[in-house]
Amino acid sequence: MNVELLAQLLVNGLISGSFYALVGLSWGLIFATTKIFHFSHAFTFAAAGYGFTLAATAGLPLPVSAGVAGLVGLGFGLTQERWLYRPLRRASASQLNIFLASLGFLFAGQSLLQIVFGPSARRLPGFTEIGVSLGPVAFTHLDAITLAEAAGLSVLTLTVLYKSRPGRAIRGVASNPELARAVGINDDAVFSLVFAIGSLLVGLASVPYVLRNAATPTMGIGPVLGGFIGVFLGGIGSYGGMLAGGLILGLAENLGGLFLPGSWQPVIAFVLLFLMLLTRPAGLFGQATR
């Protein structure tokens, strides 16, 4: 076995895994609390990506443009909670129907992006990646930013969830909605809060993605699917588990490169999910609930 290749693949896996972990946490936070299979999270990601591209192309400094991405994400996330999901909840729509509405919103949103910005990829002019070598492994400063952003935001989010009052309310509603309501926690407020946090996170996560790839109308599907898989690998019951699931997915996809050509990455993700559902449907860190 080639040790240098192994080290390189581990690093690559860590980088893409941290990205999945952040996207997964941003979605899992919403899912765990609201039980909405919020597929149009992928649209929030894409909209934020375009927001970033437009801001950066207009000449704003990259950190400011990243802030714009976060705000665009937050705005679209809250809009969906308030105008898409809340009325459906009020009408006591089934889980399946809420999912179908989410799907419709994503479909419409992606088409709108395509109509307004065209189907082709929007690249950021003048951004070049700078390579860094560390012993046997090579990566770029964008890789480092991706990893640092994911790690920083994840730690921050976990801190909010476990150390702050609103964080406790979120976890309360996630683990026992009836009890949380009984002690006077307002569902709608908590739902808005998780949509705000999750959408802000996914908006920020779109930044390194756009820098690396480019903005396209359907850019959200791949990352959000990776995030979904990470969340279910880790298990819905545990936020730390969701993060771990994303890392495992990234590492597995990259280490699979030792045996399989790169185009087989989706096969690895599917097989991992398949085996996990077969053997441990509650996820690696989740507990079977009552």
Binding site: L84, L100, A101, L103, G104, F105, L106, F107, A108, G109, Q110, S111, L112, Q114, I115, P119
Partner: peptide, 12 residues
């Protein structure tokens, strides 16, 4: 894309 936009909105 116009077709998909309309279907998405109709679904919602």
């Amino acid at each position: 894309p116009f077709r998909n936009l309309i279907f998405g909105l109709m679904l919602v």
